[in-house]
Write a protein that binds this DNA or RNA. Structure first.
Lengths: 348, 348
DNA sequence: CTGAAAGCGCTAACAT
DNA sequence: ATGTTAGCGCTTTCAG
């Protein structure tokens, strides 16, 4: 090994390397790095110079291992799909809120697979995250108990998890769906179809319940032929929409249970060339929904607010908040853009 | 402390706890947990039972601290904005590719702020990620040298970073832009405006260069009045589009440099009611672009392929690949949907 | 096949 | 104001 090139060992510099260079003990370096008092200014400067020279980056692992509070200042976010616009916006909000407190965010998708969900949370738990914001899949979550007992905080988002007592942050799914139906009824619709996700998912079930309740309130019987559940993607929703409209007593309006299904419904209506005759209201906003023709009327959630609220709650818990678990319900907002205002047979 | 309730200490179970319960040494538990050979089947079963009973989750920190290879089986992704559809899809692909290898992915946004970028990478470096997929901001990246020398692998995505020799995975920005211009020219356009991002960004500059080259190849002079750079969001692009079309010798076609700018241009055209007269081609696909009227013709990248390729490259590097740094250029695809086929004055 | 001892990089508690 | 010692939970090395 030449003497000038340096060994360039693929080894990260440690406190000891810095200490050697600065001519102090490793504890002094530790003090400087952590901003602890009790170090002479001259020495501190020398240490900082040495840190920069060797390119020292504190090892969060080792530091945390010994640290008393055992906090890693990291949280995790586990959602169905980080690429879904709703989840992506949620991710951004959680990360921003955490970042402002110097907390890093790790994220993963579970695709509704309970095993992947468990794997993701366990992987993060192994990395000793202080807590997790979880959009739970439909499954038992008893395996979380141990982790929570061991101090990992959990805040659920979008929906609760069965048999799990924890903070929840969600939209007012039911009221939003009721509002959507009332809107359609006000525009003269009676035969309103609902394209729904798996009813096992709390949020989907609540939206469906809101649909039923609002139809009842309007004095309408629910025609079960008009309720299609178990739709998981845009393609399924498109098929369902086309099928519904081809039936003997087709609906005059469509209500869709989430952004992907709204997209599918729009596709279906286009395919039939009936997007200006059949009304449509979507639950959850859809990208560029205002630019479609007609614009897509939606009951919008605020993923940014949901994420920020969930992250704040989680950070409070991590900071020691021991108040009872609570559910935060955020309002939705109906945004009329055209598709939901297409008049039905009963006049508007 | 009552004897039945249990102490419920907020302390995670350790190897020692499991060992005590199973009546073996911690080393034996370690062997079982890591699937090492040399443990009697009966003993192993007893250990596994104890692991389940106490809810033991291996501490990745401690394990890594002592481990020889010092690999954490975690990688990081640092992009401009995890909520941008392009980055969100990229994130998903990186995470999926990594997950298939048992590697977890941490993600962060830097919003083009070099300080946030550095903070993010350093935070991840402190957590000892094995490598990072980085969409670099416009800034010097010398601070990365130390980390790389210490063994952290880096793969750049979407664009290279000045003065940094590393693997790069990107789209063929220039050819894509050339293709877009040629498409518009073929449809009879000569006065084609370009709405561009900051030209300091390599990908933006390349797209602009492609625009200039293709116009030259078509025998057109570039009218600098029609080139608007420094547009960072949809609102800026919308203003630029409206301004351009209100000029004395307005363009007959628009080319936009990225998805947000495309959205802005569509908004601008709508506001003027001219979306059926002025042609538009966007670089990078835009959600629901096929459902707009007219459909948005785009030069689509494949964020999924970019992400998978970058992640694979990174994992290879981490696995010990020492071949010279290479640049992978992925092709783009022109998707004609209507807006780009609006005829210009020179006929099609 | 199993276990005891040492030590990874760092911080807590106590020196000096 | 600075240093020393012990030990976090685990894996390595080496001994039974």
């Amino acid at each position: 090994v030449g003497e000038d090139g340096g060994p360039r060992a693929p080894r990260r510099p440690t406190l000891r390397d810095v200490a050697g260079r600065a001519g102090v003990s490793i504890k002094t370096v530790s003090r400087v790095v952590n901003g602890e008092p009790g170090v002479a200014a001259v020495v501190a400067d020398r240490v900082r110079a040495a840190v920069a020279e060797v390119g020292y980056v504190p090892d969060a692992f080792a530091s945390n291992l010994r640290r008393g509070d055992r906090r890693t200042r990291a949280i995790a976010l586990v959602v169905e799909d980080v690429a879904n616009p709703f989840s992506a916006a949620l991710h951004r909000a959680v990360a921003d809120t955490a970042h402002a407190e110097g907390v890093v965010t790790l994220a993963a998708s579970h695709d509704r697979d309970p095993d992947r969900e468990r794997d993701a949370v366990l992987a993060f738990a192994g990395r000793r995250v202080d807590g997790v914001v979880l959009m739970p899949s439909v499954s038992a979550h008893a395996w979380l108990d141990g982790l929570r007992a061991a101090g990992m905080e959990v805040v659920l988002v979008d929906r609760p998890a069965e048999g799990l007592t924890a903070d929840v942050v969600l939209s007012d799914h039911r009221a939003g769906a009721e509002r959507a139906v009332a809107h359609l009824v006000a525009h003269g619709h009676r035969r309103i179809a609902f394209l729904a996700d798996e009813p096992g998912i709390f949020s989907a079930a609540e939206r469906l319940a809101g649909y039923r309740a609002a139809l009842g309130a309007a004095g309408e019987r629910v025609d079960e032929q008009l309720v299609r559940t178990g739709l998981r993607d845009a393609a399924a929703a498109e098929r369902a929409a086309v099928d519904l409209l081809g039936g003997t007593t087709p609906p005059t309006a469509l209500l869709t249970g989430q952004n992907l299904l709204t997209e599918g419904a729009v596709r279906g209506l286009r395919r039939l060339g009936r997007q200006r005759e059949v009304a449509l209201v979507g639950f959850d906003d859809v990208p560029l929904g205002d630019l479609l023709d007609p614009g897509v009327t939606v009951v919008a959630q605020s993923p940014a607010q949901l994420g920020a609220t969930a992250a704040r709650r989680l950070l409070q818990r991590i900071a020691g908040d021991r108040t009872p678990a609570a559910t935060a319900v955020l309002p939705t907002e109906l945004i009329a853009r055209g598709s939901g205002e297409i008049p039905g047979p009963s006049g508007p």
